[in-house]
Design a protein around this nucleic acid. Structure first.
Length: 348
DNA sequence: TTCCCGGCAA
DNA sequence: TTGCCGGGAA
């Protein structure tokens, strides 16, 4: 018995009775697996029943208009799943005469079927020895073996797939895969796992070291914010109007030029139509020139910077604005982009 | 209200 | 790598 024997016993005693678990019909299993991609069982269940009733075989499915599929899919999200299903159903109809394939190699070629789904269908319908690795399996393996390799890096994915293959109960692939996933969904949950009643907690690395909260490790996908910086270049005689930055944003406490940030790229002329800008600058300023838009890439933000050269004096200086002599510019700490522009502009 | 979760395709 | 979607938890 593999180390997961306990798990399979637990599964057999505690599994939910789900409709797609009582069949080896690859079409029905495919239907359920696609619906359950990125989707909770409770949410997918009613959809599964509707699809299975309306399209009892892949031949029925293949004959459906796309509009009907999408209508039935409505509310499930990730609508490309529905569109891909139709393509796959039609292909299965053509290539295999409506006999849904059960081998991993055939399945993986179909639209909307990736490694996970191919492993699931082939193991459930034909007991092919293919270890499924879904979100549940990542979690169970990371915790049980105490692996802190990120599960969403290419390297991590490879490691976890290999491990899953290695520890798989090869005598009963379908049962093993079901057990792993059910266990992850019911006991080894993302938050507050039920270690107290876990059948394998004694062998679990994360349980022993109290690390379930930290495993699995997932790389944060830093979402990049786009920001649009409109810098104003304003002179008073030989003095340049500068801005001292606050401490809550990038370039904290450094110096740059008076800045008007917008949610999108904007023409300087448009910018000056804005109520809040008018209020600060008044009506005595004219646009003399505008620089190219410079893209400045930071880890978590992309800045689109343009410099607007103005003539005249603003009516209201903001609290952090001040005039300084040009020969003092060398002494002020500025972001490199700003410094380069100013240096070039004043030719020093 | 925001955050987190999750397979596949391009 | 990023976009695709909706639901449930925080």
């Amino acid at each position: 018995m593999s180390i997961w024997g306990e798990l399979i016993s637990w599964y057999e005693g505690n599994k939910r009775d789900l409709p797609w678990r009582n069949t080896t019909d690859a079409y029905i299993i495919w239907l359920s697996e696609i619906i359950l991609q990125q989707t909770r069982v409770e949410q997918g269940m009613p959809y599964f029943y509707r699809f299975a009733e309306k399209y009892p075989t892949v031949t029925h499915f293949a004959a459906a208009p796309e509009d009907d599929i999408l209508k039935l899919w409505q509310g499930l999200g990730y609508y490309s799943r529905g569109r891909n299903m139709l393509k796959t159903a039609q292909l299965v109809q053509q290539l295999y005469g409506g006999q849904f394939p059960t081998s991993y190699e055939q399945l993986i070629k179909l639209k909307g079927i990736g490694e996970y789904t191919a492993a699931a269908i082939s193991s459930f319908s034909a007991n092919e020895v293919r270890a499924v690795v879904d979100g549940n399996v990542y979690r169970v393996l990371a915790r049980y073996f105490g692996i802190d390799e990120p599960i969403n890096s290419p390297k991590g994915k490879k490691i976890f797939q290999q491990l899953a293959d290695e520890v798989m109960d090869k005598q009963r692939p379908a049962l093993h895969n079901q057990a792993m996933m059910e266990f992850g969904a019911m006991l080894c949950k993302p938050k507050n796992p039920a270690c107290g009643i876990c059948p394998v907690h004694l062998g679990c690395a994360a349980f022993k070291t109290n690390a379930t909260t930290y495993l699995p490790v997932k790389l944060k996908t830093v979402k990049i914010r786009k920001r649009y910086f409109n810098y104003l270049l304003i002179m008073d005689g030989e003095m340049l109007l500068m801005n001292k930055r606050g401490e809550s944003d990038i370039w904290a406490n450094m110096y740059d030029l008076p800045l008007i940030e917008t949610e999108a790229l904007i023409e300087p002329a448009q910018l000056f139509q804005r109520h809040n800008v008018k209020e600060i600058l008044g009506s005595n300023m004219a646009i003399k020139d505008t620089s190219e838009v410079i893209k400045h890439v930071l880890t978590h933000q992309h800045l689109f910077i343009q410099f607007i050269i103005l003539e005249g004096q603003p009516e209201n200086l903001q609290p952090n604005w001040f005039y300084t002599a040009l020969d003092n510019l060398e002494n002020l700490a500025m972001p490199q982009r700003i410094f380069i522009f100013i240096k070039k502009f004043f030719n020093f």
